[in-house]
Design a protein around this nucleic acid. Structure first.
Lengths: 154, 154
DNA sequence: ATAACTGCAAACAATTTGCATCCTT
DNA sequence: AAGGATGCAAATTGTTTGCAGTTAT
């Protein structure tokens, strides 16, 4: 578990500069409730709400940089844009997502079993494990119920 | 395990039409080696190679339709476009991918353990399970070695 | 001082859509 | 015949990039 300050140092160590923009963006990710993930646009909206004048291009550049350094985790949902969240621990167990194919809502969970299985699968394949991302797709309780209602109505 | 013909019927059952374009695209997915996945562009290239005159717009529309019917599985790698592959069995165990963060190559694997864990996680969350997609990220053997060489050279 | 970083606007790539025409059902 | 499907081109959306000016080191 890294502190906000430690993350700035990750930048410096790799020869990148610590700029107000990058600090601001890190602050925002740190202020997020655990497990919350942002798209570039979400981030931009938050920045605007705080009357920060960081350009969208810089947001994109920063997200990409921080992801490449392992500070952020880059998530692909089935949507057309990427999401980012803090990689709370380094190469440790991360939370995963379960997604409703009907309404698109996501929930989080962690599974030690899946994590362990992933590490050993990577091992068997000769890979040095970095991260595992599991998406479970299904129909959530609400959508199952509304489907039942529809059927009853017909 | 569905036959090509059964899949056409899936279309008809839902009130969609069976057109030559859709049949052609299904044929292509059926002719693919198990586990191979195509982007819309890949598909278009294959079609062109067979001198089919299906428009790119139709390819996109068809891929989306077939995915929504559960005939195709829609995969998000870290690239900027989606990939599709046949969903060989319905809601059954599917193969997963392990991806090199360095060079981007992917390998496939199946894990009954991960599959079973996913089904019960969905269950606990009140979801009706549809599919589970696990991506494991890491550094492949080759990339680990070239990194060692670099270090030795410096 | 100098190389990295930023903002802006223009450029791109992947995907979607409006509309006239065509073809399953 | 009637409505879904297609092809084309134009439009959108998400993201990247060139460049001139700015700033952290």
């Amino acid at each position: 578990m890294q502190t906000r300050e430690a993350l700035s140092l990750v930048l410096r160590d790799k020869g990148f500069r610590i700029t107000p923009q990058r600090e601001k963006i890190l602050d925002i990710f740190f202020s997020l409730p655990e497990g919350e993930h942002l798209s570039a646009e979400d981030l931009q909206n938050i920045l605007n709400g705080q009357s920060s004048d960081i350009s969208l291009a810089t947001s994109y550049r920063t997200l990409k940089l921080l992801a490449s350094l392992g500070v952020l985790r880059e998530l692909d949902f089935t949507e057309d844009h990427k999401h980012y969240e803090l990689a709370r621990s380094d190469a440790g167990i991360q939370h995963q997502h379960i997604i409703c194919v009907e309404c698109g809502t996501t929930q989080e969970f962690t599974s030690l079993e899946v994590f362990n299985a992933s590490v050993s699968i990577a091992d068997e394949a000769g890979f040095e494990f970095t991260d595992a991302q599991l998406k479970i797709f299904g129909r959530c309780q609400q959508c199952q119920q509304s489907k039942l209602k529809e059927a009853a109505a017909s």
